[in-house]
């Protein structure tokens, strides 16, 4: 059915036009593109020795300017190189944790909304519980009992941030299931698989997409917070672990602003970019939000 494909293409094109009409969303997308580029290219461009504490010769705590664009840290490594190389882990943790979290949330949300009854009520009870419990406190507890590492951080964030997705997805599932076309599909003889697969999931997916971008934003901040509290992966460089070092080494009292500002600005830029893209997508999906 080429007609169907034509139609999908026009739908996508219309969606893209609506997205492109929002300057902040496009700016966010461009920023993300840049961040991904940096994350992929930097490890290839950086020499093996540049970040090795034992091989670095520059003096510690050197302010920006002389030789080093953004100065050096407490071991004499270039802050600029550290920040650029930290992009990869921050992005990776953010994306995988969010992907996992949204997958769990969607599964639970659709199941709870579709099946209803005591099973749905139970799932919702659990969701509401985890929604109320401070997610970060749980994540801290989880990552403190599990072995340190990137996997733990991802798991801790994903396992504590799914409830908001589950809630939104459940609400949307209920809204779709209340529509007469689902009643019609049931009357035609459609079972659970047909109703969820053909009617519910396609209607829920755009919302899931929005939620993913917003969850990535949350996950990146959460990663930096866990790292700051000393729960991060000690073998990997991320923006959060840089700030953890800055705190430990007393960057504030040394007024070493060049060590503090760049990783923080990196986090803000990427998180803001994801948030802006998410909000722009939300406007595309829900035209009522448009001005």
């Amino acid at each position: 059915m080429s007609v169907v494909w034509d139609r999908r293409r026009t739908a996508w094109a219309a969606g893209w036009r609506a997205f492109a009409a929002q300057r902040s969303g496009v700016a966010g997308l461009a920023l993300l593109g840049l961040a991904v580029l940096v994350a992929v290219l930097m490890p290839l461009l950086t020499g093996a020795d540049a970040l090795n504490v034992a091989r670095v010769v520059a003096p510690a705590w050197e302010p920006p300017g002389s030789g080093h664009l953004l100065g050096t840290d407490h071991t004499g490594r270039s802050v600029a190189l550290l920040v650029l190389n930290g992009t990869a882990v921050s992005l990776l943790v953010g994306l995988t944790a969010a992907g996992l979290s949204v997958a769990i949330g969607t599964l639970i949300g659709v199941t709870a909304g579709h099946f209803g009854g005591w099973w749905g009520a139970l799932l919702m009870r659990v969701t509401d519980f985890f929604l109320v419990i401070p997610a970060l406190v749980l994540a801290i507890a989880l990552s403190s009992v599990l072995p340190r590492g990137m996997g733990t951080i991802i798991l801790a964030i994903a396992l504590t941030s799914w409830p908001s997705t589950a809630r939104v997805v459940r609400a949307q599932t209920l809204a779709v299931e209340a529509r007469p076309f689902v009643e019609r599909a049931r009357a035609l003889g459609g079972g659970h698989l047909h109703v969820t697969g053909k009617h519910v999931l396609p209607a829920v997916l755009p919302l899931v997409l929005v939620n993913t971008t917003l969850t990535v934003a949350y996950a990146i901040v959460a990663e930096s917070t866990l790292a700051f509290l000393g729960l991060g992966d000690p073998t990997r460089l991320s923006w959060g672990s840089m700030l953890h070092q800055a705190q430990l080494q007393g960057a504030v009292s040394k007024e070493a602003w060049w060590f503090l500002l760049p990783p923080g600005l990196g986090i803000i830029a990427v998180v803001l970019a994801f948030t802006l893209v998410g909000r722009a997508l939300e406007t595309v999906i829900n035209p009522r939000l448009r001005g």
Binding site: A217, S224, F228, L243, V252, L261, G264, L272
Partner: peptide
């Protein structure tokens, strides 16, 4: 809605929302 006030306050809010708390604290301190 969409006035200058709305745009600026929303922009500021989104930026602050994206900021790690501890980092802002350290910055303020400095």
């Amino acid at each position: 809605r969409d006035s200058r006030f709305d745009r600026v306050s929303t922009g500021v809010a989104l930026t602050l929302w994206s900021t790690p708390t501890f980092w802002l604290g350290m910055l303020l301190m400095m």
